[in-house]
Design a protein around this nucleic acid. Structure first.
Lengths: 215, 215
DNA sequence: ACCTGAACACCGTTCAAGT
DNA sequence: ACCTGAACACCGTTCAAGT
């Protein structure tokens, strides 16, 4: 069901929004030039008047999604501000897995990630980190957040329930098999925001001791 | 140049190895049933006698690549063992980006990740972590490692040199623009193994304080 | 100006047909 | 048994043609 028949003319905005809607509903692989055009009531080739090609469209899709992430709170204590920001980013990436997939296959581009990047770096710098440490922490936090979002979406989109039996504590020559069998159930549950927050807090804690040491 | 014309018959092994070779040279997107078959001197349709479909082939490609990762050293101090293991995993993922891309779009499967997972969990448990904490740490470390590998490969495969100007410290209404301009150069350099190790050590450090506290 | 249809060189997968 | 060719329903992209 096409969503925007308002004006008689196509818009870059409308194209990006239609692509996001398809990605949300049917996955990034379902986003094709022909399908986006069809959902707007046009042929697939009409998009080329508004977008250089599929690559540029996906770039704009990812940027559009990152626009949903709220700004970091520059007035809160730095560790709390950072934890809240990356938790919010993680939530958005779970709601729109396409963004994580897109930024994973090409360099990050677009005004929204740029602005968020600048502001997070400002918070880390004001917390007392050197430029080098701030950039390292920013990249580490970003990598962890995107990796965790992809980890969860890869498992939730699996055919049927996620089967943690893959790790096979049973069929092992290790003899350690028995001792570890009780870990099995934890691997089944550990996914999504609670699991993410735990690792995030430990990562921030690692940098916090460094900041405290230099203060 | 096809690599194996030895026997007159196709093998699942040969198919997987040909697919890995294509992915290494031309990227995961270049891996198609027709291309793999052609590189072995067969039609693309011949593969279906040895592999259920492209999905199963990619699963085996990822598992084959993870076979290159050396076993974790169970006798070293746990934090060192963990750091070395995930550093080695990161190296393999940089050499074969296809594996990170594959495990990012479907649940992890295959004997090699399963065995490595079991052994890493054994090390974490023996270090004194509870089952819950061990699983959380294992997942967090895996997410960070895969995310970091994807971050680097997305930037190294970019058209031309990676341009850190995207973050645009200049064109900002922030007024913080000037104060942060010197961060610019750090964003250009920070990529690959050294950047990865820094975050890894901080993440492990975050868990180390927890282990020490419970000891 | 803006949009379209046919065309080109690709996909994964099925299946009847060859040897 | 093992492999193939044609076929089907898709891709991204180009480009001459329509209105």
């Amino acid at each position: 069901m096409p969503s925007s028949e308002q004006t008689g003319r196509l818009t870059a905005e409308a194209i990006v929004e239609a692509a996001v809607a398809i990605a949300d509903r049917d996955g990034l692989d379902a986003v094709s030039m022909r399908r986006v055009g069809a959902d707007l009531g046009y042929s697939g080739m009409s998009l080329y008047g508004y977008v250089r090609g599929k690559d540029e469209l996906l770039e704009q899709v990812a940027d559009h999604i990152l626009g949903e992430v709220p700004e970091i709170d520059s007035h809160a204590p730095w560790d709390l501000a950072v934890i809240n920001f990356f938790t919010a980013l993680h939530d958005v990436l779970l709601r729109h897995p396409a963004a994580a997939q897109i930024y994973t296959s090409r360099p990050t581009r677009g005004p929204n990630p740029a602005r968020h990047g600048r502001r997070v770096l400002a918070v880390l710098t004001e917390a007392g980190m050197s430029a080098k440490t701030a950039v390292e922490a920013f990249i580490a936090l970003s990598c962890y957040t995107v990796g965790a979002a992809l980890y969860t979406t890869a498992r939730s989109s699996a055919d049927g329930l996620y089967e943690p039996g893959w790790i096979g504590f049973d069929d092992e020559d290790d003899a350690s098999g028995d001792a570890l069998a009780h870990l099995w159930e934890h691997l089944a549950v550990r996914t999504g925001p609670p699991q993410f927050r735990s690792g995030l807090e430990h990562l921030v804690a690692g940098y916090a001791t460094e900041v405290a040491g230099h203060a």
